[in-house]
Amino acid sequence: MANQANGEVLLEISGIHKRFGGLHALSDVALSINKGEIYGLIGPNGAGKTTLFNVLTGLYQPDEGKFTFKGIDLFRKKPNVVVESGIARTFQNIRLFHNMTALENVMVGRHVRTRANVLGAVFRDPKTRAEEAGIHERAQSLLDYVGIRKHGGEFAKNLSYGDQRRLEIARALATDPQLLALDEPAAGMNPKETDDLKKLMEKIRNDGVTILLIEHDVKLMMGLCDRIAVLDYGKKIAEGVPEEVKNNPRVIEAYLGASPD
């Protein structure tokens, strides 16, 4: 994939620290994601990838640092504010609303872009009805977009594993994000499913959504990402295009251990 990034910075963090008691989970992390790129985040287990993810999506409050998105300050903001400003996410261990249908899951994603309040819900005025119809239509088309429209009426928990991953992506897309953060979306998938997922991610990016991706599948990352950052022990040890990162001695050391000589 050609680098479609136009150089405009979408998300920027610097000097991010996050401590859990004595554990320094993130230490002075800085990165910037450009509009339109697929930005990969890799690192050994426990490197702090998911912690960084949780910081970027507002689930964790960082201790120090700067965090701006589209120039808006998002440092220590609540998750709903982060989503509202245009960052949506999926979870490493799928977190769907299991006893809601696939369609309803995506409809929940529209919550942040809709306004109906209790009065609207009770009186069902034309505005609310139109909004509700819009939610329904959008949710249907998103199910279609990720390729699981025919499962719309099924409970989320009854979908196959790959479809659950897709549903999570559809639900995240329902919030109209400019940045979609995917936490190990290919985990547990077979090669065919991984390939389909790769195509889906490329489609999403081509439709103008920037993607931040954590993934263990290095082959997938190398073929998909425009730029990659590597975390180890809560520190960023490398950043660059896949080719650079792959040959970076510090990255090789982090993954394979130091060479004897």
């Binding site: 507002g58 709903n80 989503v83 996410r89 979870f91 977190r95 994603g109 942040v112």
Partner: peptide, 8 residues
């Protein structure tokens, strides 16, 4: 948590 992450 997922509800929060959906902007609720």
């Amino acid at each position: 948590i997922a509800a929060q992450a959906m902007g609720i």
